[in-house]
């Protein structure tokens, strides 16, 4: 791989100091676990002059109950994916989230990769996550330094796929995120953190930092899960991933949510599922869910695996997981 470019490194101990340092240099980047960011820096995809290492900020490494309001859980953005996956309360109340966290990359990555980094993961593409010389010999691509999208050469948009595992699992629970920026703090629904644009998929304002995630109180009787398809079962990014949360009441659906990853430039919440409320999840309903998922997933040629296969797989994952959860 290419040599590491020179940059300044700061290790602030508070989020406020991190934001202040970030604003002081226009070519600065936040650095959490580094499992993806350091790779991108060495590939010349990122060329920061300043990096702000977030790993010394103790306040964003905790999982705590939210006191007051409607309650729920607050997860610091610096929580390691392995700690998230092993958290007893989360495993009990939000299984899709712990299953998704446990499926990110390999075990070593999860010990230092963070949930904040996973939610803010850059979009991925066959023509983007390559070395400098590879991309250069291909005249770069629309997402970085080039004029043409090699996935859809006629178009003017980037189809790089959002490939984080945990986002869909948090989306089915209606998670919110706390952001801290130079203009103060704000809390927005996690779904609003994402834009359907592979080139610029995060709706963060300049220098804004994701500091924590809020999960609403669990609803009794709710079950959930996450499944992904990948090339190597032990270590890969998803080719397609699917989170399902469902609450059944007397054999009928009281509430259902499905979210997908790796098949669109942003994690996608499946729409139209309200039609199933009040109905049993029989074969007919499950087949309809599978086809709805397939029609809403828009995989493009962003991986070595063909889009038609990923579209079929994501529907199959959704159907299988929903059937398993409804039967439980």
């Amino acid at each position: 791989m290419e040599n590491m470019p020179a940059f300044r490194l700061h290790r602030p101990e508070t989020a406020a100091e991190a934001v202040r340092l970030k604003t002081s240099d226009a070519r600065s980047r936040y650095l959490a676990g580094g499992t993806d960011m350091i790779v991108n820096v060495r590939r010349g995809i990122e060329a920061p002059e300043t990096m702000i290492d977030l790993t010394a900020i103790a306040a964003i490494t905790e999982i705590s109950e939210i006191s007051g309001g409607d309650g729920g859980l607050r997860i610091g953005a610096g929580v390691k994916l392995s700690d998230l996956a092993a958290h007893a309360d989360l495993r009990r109340d939000y299984p899709a989230i712990t299953q998704a966290a446990a499926s990110v990359a390999g075990p070593t990555h999860r010990r230092y990769g963070t949930i904040g980094g996973n939610l803010c993961l850059d979009t991925r593409c066959l023509f983007y996550n390559q070395s400098q010389w590879w991309r250069e010999s291909n005249n770069f691509c629309l997402k970085h330094k080039g004029d043409v999208c090699h996935v859809a050469p006629g178009g003017k948009r980037c189809f790089a796929a959002f490939s984080g595992d945990v986002a869909p699992a948090m989306l089915v629970y209606g998670a919110e995120v706390d952001l801290k920026g130079p203009n103060g703090a704000r809390t927005i629904p996690l779904v609003d953190l994402y834009r359907d644009d592979g080139m610029d998929h995060l709706a963060l304002e300049a220098d804004e930092l994701l500091v924590s995630i809020r999960l609403p109180k669990p609803v009794a009787g709710t079950v959930s899960g996450y499944e992904k398809s990948r090339i190597r079962g032990s270590i890969d990014f998803p080719l397609a991933g699917c989170a399902v949360r469902v609450t059944m009441d007397d054999g009928k659906v009281a509430d259902i949510a499905i979210a997908l990853t790796a098949v669109n430039p942003s994690p996608h919440i499946v729409t139209g599922l309200d039609d199933f409320v009040g109905r049993p999840l029989d074969d007919d309903a499950l087949d309809k869910i599978r086809e709805m998922v397939r029609s809403q997933a828009k995989p493009m040629l962003t991986t070595t695996v063909r889009p038609w296969y990923r579209r079929r797989v994501v529907g199959a994952l959704a159907r299988r997981l929903t059937a398993k959860l409804a039967g439980a």
Binding site: M1, L9, R11, L31, G34, T35, I38, V39, R42, M51, D53, T55, A56, A105, G106, P107, T108, H109, R111, Y112, I235
Partner: peptide, 30 residues
């Protein structure tokens, strides 16, 4: 090895936990 976190050759322990030393900045280990 791969120099990009894919192969695990560079695994060391940081505070007792396995970590890829090729994706970790030395200064982050203060």
């Amino acid at each position: 090895g791969c120099d990009g976190g894919e192969c695990g050759l560079c695994t060391v322990l940081v505070d007792g936990k396995a970590q890829h030393s090729c994706l970790t900045l030395a200064a982050s280990c203060a």
